[in-house]
Each structure stands twice: as structure tokens, then as C-alpha cells.
């Protein structure tokens, strides 16, 4: 014992003093992890949780001329509950997002299927190609649809030029359909990725087994591929439905009065109407709906995943 300890104290850094902090950090892995996460969490807390708490507080205030009456009341929530306009607006928002979501998923599914099963070389390039537009300016992509659908836009002027119509089609712009078309187009990439991932994960030998057991291509698709891709379909629906319900730009540029959604109404409360507490209330109501829908999606996902695995 004495022998060896003499040897070490001369040479190795094992005896080097270690600071208390370093020791504590070395001992606790969780502490190290939290320390690394803390700046990100701090910013997200400042940027999300704190504002959200203030928003909740403000939703319990009321407007008083140009300032606020800070006595807490649920008057705004009662208004949202009682006045049919709010309910109608929420329903319309969900309806528009819902149709856009279904359209996007249905249209993207074959594409994702094609890349997952029939593209063998340069898969990466295909995926990048399909998702690239998503990363570029949302505002400009919506603007592009305004150019296309406008009263004197691409479609109307094109059809007139070809002599197929006399008068411009006025229903194209400022309608629910305009909003739905634009949303479906703008969010396609968001649907493609989860669909592709779930299809790509399917073990090809399962399909061969189904064929071997006598299924033709159609039966095989509905009995094997489709059920196994269910998690992807659910994820894609979720990823489109939730953000589009609160969309502002598309209905603002293309919706007109007919295609206005809850997001426009919220903006209005903070802008022209200048009723911030009401705007806060509507935001909270939207959040609560989103949370409820998210829970439903979560539940369905669990069920679907349990079936798949």
C-alpha cells in the first residue's frame, strides 16, 4: 500500500484538486443535463409561459374605454359562449382547416407512397424537393395564390385569353375554397414527411408475405400498407390541422369576409377593434380547443400505435 501510493502521488493527475462545482457536476448527470438545457428552457419560458400567463390574466379583464378594467371577471368567456358569432367563427375555422387537412393528406399520401416504395435512387433529392417549398416564405406562397386566383389573376386572365369565359370568375378569390386550396398547397410538405416516414418503415417482407398468402395489390394495400401507415396519417393530420386553425395570413389575403377565420378575429381585437382582453380571451379559447383536439389525437395515436406494434 505505502509503496504504491508513493508512486502515484509523484506522477498522476488523479490527485489534482477538483473544484466543488466540478465534483458536483461530475456526480450528477441530471444536473449537467439541466444546466445545458437551462438557457433554452429559460428563453422558452420567457417567450411562452410568462406571456401565456399574462394572456390568461388579461382575458379575465375587460375593456374600459381606451384602457382596461383590471377586475377579474369571466365576462369575455361568457360573451364567447353566448354570442353565436364566436361559435360560428370557431366552427368555420375548424371546418376550413379540417377540409384542408383531409385534402392535403389524401393528395400527399400517393406521393409519399411513391417515394417510399418506388424511388430507389436519389431518395434524398425527392424528399428535399417535396419539402423545399415549405421552408420558404409562407407569406409569399400565399401571395402567389392571390396572383393566381385574383380577379384579374392567372386563372381568370388565362381562361379569358383562351376565350373560355367572358367575365372573370369572381368566386375564386375571397372565399372559403380559396383559403382551403391555399392551405392545402402551403402545408403539403408538412404532411409528406410523416407519411413518408411511416410508409418507409413498413417491412417490405410483410407485403411479400401478404402477396404470398394470396392478396392482390389492392387487397394488400388496404389490409397491410394502409393500417401500418396509420400513425403517419394521424401525425400528418395533426401537424396540419392544429397550426392551420389559427392561421392569419391566408384568410386575410384570400378569405374575404366569407373566408375569415378565428385568427383574423383575434388580430382584429388587437388592431382595429382595440379590445385586447377580448383578443386574449379568443386566443385562450383557441388554445383550449387546440389542447382538447391534441388530446384526442394523442389518444388515437396511442390506439393506432398499439395496433401496429
Amino acid at each position: 500500500m505505502t509503496e504504491t501510493s508513493v508512486q502515484t502521488s509523484a506522477a498522476e493527475p488523479a490527485a489534482k484538486p477538483v473544484s466543488r462545482l466540478e465534483r458536483l457536476l461530475y456526480r450528477s448527470e441530471a444536473l449537467r443535463g439541466y444546466l445545458l438545457m437551462s438557457p433554452t428552457l429559460l428563453i422558452m419560458t420567457i417567450g411562452i409561459i410568462v406571456p401565456f400567463l399574462i394572456l390568461v390574466t388579461m382575458s379575465l379583464w375587460t375593456r374600459d374605454g381606451f384602457s382596461f378594467d383590471a377586475t377579474l371577471t369571466i365576462a369575455n368567456y361568457l360573451r364567447v359562449w353566448n354570442e353565436p358569432i364566436f361559435g360560428a367563427l370557431l366552427r368555420r375555422s375548424f371546418w376550413i382547416s379540417g377540409v384542408a387537412t383531409v385534402a392535403t393528406v389524401v393528395l400527399c399520401y400517393p406521393m409519399a407512397y411513391y417515394v417510399a416504395f418506388h424511388v430507389h435512387r436519389n431518395k434524398m433529392m425527392w424528399i428535399i424537393l417535396m419539402t423545399l417549398p415549405f421552408w420558404t416564405s409562407y407569406l409569399l406562397r400565399v401571395f402567389a395564390w392571390k396572383v393566381i386566383l385574383g380577379y384579374e389573376g392567372v386563372i381568370n386572365s388565362g381562361l379569358q385569353g383562351l376565350g373560355m369565359i367572358e367575365e372573370p370568375l369572381s368566386f375564386l378569390l375571397y372565399s372559403k375554397s380559396a383559403v382551403i386550396i391555399t392551405l392545402a398547397h402551403a402545408w403539403a410538405a408538412f404532411a409528406i414527411l410523416p407519411l413518408y416516414v411511416s410508409l418507409e418503415k413498413i417491412d417490405k417482407s410483410l407485403l411479400e408475405a401478404a402477396t404470398d398468402l394470396g392478396d392482390g395489390p389492392v387487397a394488400r394495400f388496404w389490409r397491410i400498407t394502409f393500417p401500418l401507415s396509420m400513425p403517419g396519417i394521424i401525425a400528418a393530420s395533426f401537424l396540419i390541422f392544429i397550426p392551420t386553425t389559427g392561421d392569419y395570413i391566408t384568410p386575410a389575403l384570400l378569405g374575404g369576409p366569407d373566408g375569415a377565420m378565428i385568427g383574423n378575429f383575434i388580430q382584429l381585437q388587437f388592431g382595429a377593434v382595440n379590445n385586447w382582453p377580448m383578443g386574449a380571451t379568443l386566443s385562450i379559447v383557441l388554445m383550449l380547443w387546440i389542447a382538447a383536439i391534441a388530446l384526442v389525437f394523442l389518444f388515437i395515436t396511442r390506439q393506432a400505435e398499439r395496433r401496429v406494434s
Binding site: 498522476e12 493527475p13 488523479a14 466540478e22
Partner: peptide
Amino acid sequence: IDGQPTADVPPHHRP
């Protein structure tokens, strides 16, 4: 290790 307690010695200081 070699007579030295190691509890507080991180990997990069161990012989």
C-alpha cells in the same frame, strides 16, 4: 485505483 479513491475523479483525470 493504485491506492487513490476515485469517487470524485472525472474520467479525464483517471489513470
